[in-house]
């Protein structure tokens, strides 16, 4: 957990440091563990319940690790209007148990959907074949 203490120290003196800390912890470890919650709570003089409550509130934070890489598929209205729902089914088929297909509500590319994001890489104008190819290459 040495990295965790570096993360905590890096945010000392910041106003409202909890979200930045949780982002860094999630980026470093892939999830926010019970152990991390305990250490963060102690460091910020919060209760564990307070930190847990924040972790569970936000869709971005995970309590448990998931070794699969994720593709975030937009299924908001603008992508729906361009056929994202059919795409979602295709993505699930291609993903199997190897890739995690997550739903995201809007990537801000609403005129060129359906869209997806893998890591920080954006993909637009998707169709079934393109999604299958993207997932196949993950």
């Amino acid at each position: 957990m040495a990295d965790l203490y570096h993360i905590l120290a890096a945010h000392d003196g910041r106003e409202g440091p909890l979200l930045p800390i949780l982002h860094d912890v999630q980026a470093a470890f892939g999830h926010v563990s019970e152990e991390a919650i305990r250490a963060i709570a102690l460091h910020l003089n919060l209760s564990r319940a307070e930190v847990s409550g924040v972790v569970s509130f936000y869709h971005d934070f995970r309590r448990t690790p998931d070794p699969r890489t994720a593709i975030k598929l937009c299924r908001a209205e603008s992508c729906q209007a361009r056929g994202s729902e059919a795409l979602a089914a295709e993505a699930e088929r291609s993903a199997g148990s190897r890739v995690r297909v997550e739903t995201v509500y809007c990537l801000g590319l609403c005129s060129v959907g359906p869209n997806a994001m893998i890591g920080e890489d954006l993909h637009a104008r998707l169709d079934g074949a393109k999604v299958a190819a993207l997932i196949g290459a993950m």
């Binding site: 409202g16 979200l19 930045p20 982002h23 509130f57 936000y58 869709h59 971005d60 934070f61 995201v104």
Partner: peptide, 8 residues
């Protein structure tokens, strides 16, 4: 700059 965490 502060970053949100996926809550609409």
């Amino acid at each position: 700059i502060r970053v949100g965490a996926g809550a609409y």
